[in-house]
């Protein structure tokens, strides 16, 4: 996953950092989460290629509305595709059906090809909608919104702590790697490399646990009584209702198209 990040890119944007999220950004986070979930469930249920293309088009529309930088976002999507491409390429040869061509004794079928295309369209449409609707939020806002959507409080706190410390720990990791580098460490396929990486992970974990002890002490020192308050409140506005109606209509349209084109 590391190549998804540039050299100086942060893992998650910081709290208060300016987020460019265009028109999507003004919609209530709860509405966006629910929209992404309903879109995901409906699209996974679709099977006609035409409808799936419309769904992917809808996700692309959201991408334009969200004003996410096009290139990096599509690059991330393409990286997910590079992981599943082998599975998809195998499908034509394993699904029985009308033959297209024969390669080394294995016959590729149209049915298998379409099945592969179907999976690729579904996966891309859903993940793109998720990234544009939910991924444009500030991570902390995501935690608050999930809390308002009745996610268990303990899980929300765990999410918040994870979000808070990912960047801190990544910086620590980069420091350790830099320290290894100045001592002449060059990764390769050998025992020394694996041992060094093992020690690196072990060191990170030991430091993480010691850090968490300090965090708990600091919390107690400030009067932590066993409850963390989540203060952010959300209120539905006209914009949110309009978005919900429009998006709901689009999802309904997908269902109708699926029935009509089956």
């Amino acid at each position: 996953m590391a190549h998804a990040l540039g050299q100086n890119e942060k893992t998650l944007t910081e709290t208060g950092a300016l987020r460019v999220s265009g028109r999507i950004g003004s919609v209530d986070p709860r509405v966006r989460i629910l929209a992404a979930i309903s879109f995901g469930i409906v699209v996974v249920g679709l099977s006609s290629l035409m409808t799936l293309s419309v769904a992917l088009g809808l996700s692309m529309g959201l991408l334009f509305l969200s004003r996410l930088p096009l290139r990096p976002t599509l690059k991330r999507m393409a990286m997910m595709d590079s992981f599943i491409i082998f599975m998809l390429l195998l499908l034509p040869f394993t699904v029985p059906g009308d033959p297209i061509f024969t390669l080394w004794g294995a016959t590729a079928s149209w049915q298998g090809l379409w099945r592969g295309v179907e999976i690729a369209l579904t996966a891309n449409a859903v993940i793109l909608a998720l990234m544009t609707l939910v991924g444009t939020m500030e991570p902390v806002t995501l935690g608050h919104a999930l809390h308002k959507l009745r996610m268990p409080e303990t899980l929300v706190h765990l999410l918040m702590f994870t979000i808070r410390y990912i960047e801190v720990l990544r910086e620590e990791y980069l420091r350790l790697r830099a320290a290894m580098k100045v001592r002449g460490f060059r990764p390769g396929t050998n025992w020394h490399t694996y041992r060094s990486f093992g020690y690196l992970v072990g060191m990170m974990l030991v430091r993480a646990i010691e850090r968490s002890e300090r965090i708990l002490q600091a919390m107690k020192c400030r009067g932590f009584s066993g409850r963390i308050h989540l203060l952010q409140d959300f209120a539905l506005t006209v914009v949110d209702r309009r978005f919900a109606v429009l998006f709901g209509g689009a999802v309904l349209l997908l269902i109708c198209l699926e029935i009509a084109w089956r």
Partner: peptide, 14 residues
């Protein structure tokens, strides 16, 4: 929770 959260973040980084 602090320990679990920090470890969860460590595994994300790992």
């Amino acid at each position: 929770i602090p320990a679990a959260g920090v470890l969860s973040a460590s595994f994300f980084v790992a």
